[in-house]
Amino acid sequence: MPITTKDVMRVADLARLDVNEADAVLYASQLQKILGHVEKLSEVDTLGADDKTAKTAGTRPLREDKAVKGLSQDDALKNAPERSDGCIKVPQIIE
């Protein structure tokens, strides 16, 4: 199935990436080529194969539900592009 620039723009919107028309044309052809290559997976018989991530040894325990010290407010804000009154500032969200 061919990938159109419209498909690319839809995916770019989902991925929160600003993509212009010229880029969309390039992405369409590159994604087309890569997806064409991965198409060969359809020839594999996967009946009965587990689709959960390949498991390695060991367990994945949950830690005890106990509060631990996290970053201080100062540290948490250190890399924030914009700050105001000890908070991270972002553009207006609600009209």
Partner: peptide, 14 residues
């Protein structure tokens, strides 16, 4: 078609 299928083939590779 893509993610799930790939995960299944991953299990076969393992």
């Amino acid at each position: 078609a893509y993610y799930k299928k790939a995960s299944e083939v991953r299990a076969l590779i393992k």
